[in-house]
Computed example of a mutant assay.
Amino acid sequence: MRRWWKWAVYIGGMSVFAGSASFTVYCAWKVYMYHQPEEKPAIADRKKAYHFVLVPEELDNDYWRLVEKGAKAAAKEMGVRLEYIGPRQANIEEHVKILEKAAASKVDGIMTQGLTEQQFTPIINRIVEKNIPVITIDTDAPTSRRTAYIGTDNYYAGFIAGRALVEDTGGNANVAIITGSFEASHQQLRVKGFQDAAKHEKGIHIIAIEESDITRVQAAEKAYKILKEHPEVNAFYGTSALDAIGIAKVIEQFHRERETYVIGFDTLPETIHYLEKGTIEATVVQEPYEMGYRAVKMMVDIIEGNHVPSINNTETRVIRKQDLPLRPARNYEVRHD
């Protein structure tokens, strides 16, 4: 009888001990889990509902196709939906209408140029009032309510183009400027920066400024007109991606490759071709792929409440024939998939 009582006491004690230990472990586990952050879903799952729209100045422009490639690469990486829609040819009224349609469809974010303060600031502000964030790319609208700008410092780009021309011509040149648009703010800034870089050079004379409407044909026609009216011109500066290409065609037509200096913008395949031949002496390099890629990532940050700087300048520099080939190629080569 005593032996049975002792076994009962022993078993009861062990049960109490085991229960106490289990309770202690359970409490410890609850305390541990309380301090652990909630597990977040994978990026693709968390962001798959985001719908962004990229509206370029000109849909089939090779420069904007590089912006598109960068944006699509980031969209795939982040698991968001991206639409690339815009005017077939540069047209501010059509551009604004496309922005209005994108806002009406209640997308999550819009990326576009801020081509003119007068026309783009009001539409950007109306979009933001609908709680749709806007990022400007390539051309800013600084007085608007856009959240951020990503792209070239266009005044600086024009300034370094001017200093390159001064250096390469020894400070003696009669210069004609062909700009993509008199209205677009980034083109205005590129002209102003160039003028400021050359204004104290006694041997640099700006003879004429013409507009190309951002087309090769118009750039060539204006270059032809300038050389007919001002045969003393021996240097050209083109401020849009297509201007120097049109200028180069006319320079070769006039057989003035050796006596005429040409500096342009961007590195489209035709620009590189003329740079290798020596018809174009120099060009200003931008980073269109990086603009598109970083814009999409910034838009995700904005929607998720993360801080994004209001100004995000990409690299800009002047390159010449000896600087080829350029790397990374993704900023300079257009591959049609």
Rank of each mutant, 00 (worst) to 15 (best):
V80I: 06
L115A: 01
N125R: 03
E129Q: 15
P231M: 08
I110F: 07
G162W: 03
T179H: 06
I311R: 15
L275I: 13
I177F: 02
A18Y: 15
M1H: 04
K40I: 13
D243K: 11
K101T: 14
I206M: 02
Y293P: 04
V67L: 10
K222D: 05
T152G: 06
E333K: 14
T24S: 11
T152E: 09
K249V: 05
Y26N: 06
I160L: 06
K297M: 11
E290M: 13
Y50C: 03
V262Q: 08
A220G: 01
M291P: 00
K202T: 01
F120E: 03
A75H: 02
F17C: 05
H95C: 07
A244G: 07
G70N: 05
I98N: 04
P56K: 03
I226M: 07
V300Y: 13
I206L: 04
V55Q: 01
I272F: 02
Q36N: 06
V262C: 07
Q188L: 05
V334C: 00
G151N: 10
K69N: 14
A164H: 03
R81G: 08
A104D: 12
P231R: 15
K106N: 07
I251Y: 04
F254N: 15
I11L: 08
V318G: 00
L66H: 06
A241W: 09
Y26M: 08
M1Y: 02
G246R: 02
A73C: 11
G86H: 11
Y149Q: 03
A295C: 08
L275H: 01
R327C: 08
G114N: 09
V16N: 08
T116M: 08
V191W: 02
F120I: 06
V25W: 15
S181R: 15
I132N: 02
A164S: 11
E68V: 03
R65W: 11
S240Y: 08
R294P: 05
E259I: 01
A223W: 05
P325H: 00
S20P: 05
L189N: 09
P231Q: 11
I11C: 05
A197L: 11
M299L: 10
Q195M: 10
N131K: 14
F194E: 01
A173P: 06
R330N: 02
W4S: 03
T139E: 12
K30R: 14
E229W: 12
A90V: 05
K321D: 05
D243F: 14
A103N: 13
I207T: 15
I137E: 03
D140N: 03
T215C: 07
S22Y: 13
R320C: 00
W7Q: 15
E167V: 10
E100S: 13
Q286M: 01
E290N: 10
M291K: 00
P133G: 02
I214R: 10
T136F: 10
L275S: 09
M111V: 06
A176R: 01
S185Q: 13
F254I: 08
E221K: 13
V9G: 07
G13M: 09
V16S: 00
L275M: 11
T271M: 04
T279E: 13
A176V: 01
F23Y: 14
A223G: 04
D45W: 15
I123G: 07
S20F: 07
H230T: 04
Q286K: 08
S185P: 01
R81F: 13
G79V: 12
P37Q: 15
G86R: 02
L242R: 04
K69C: 10
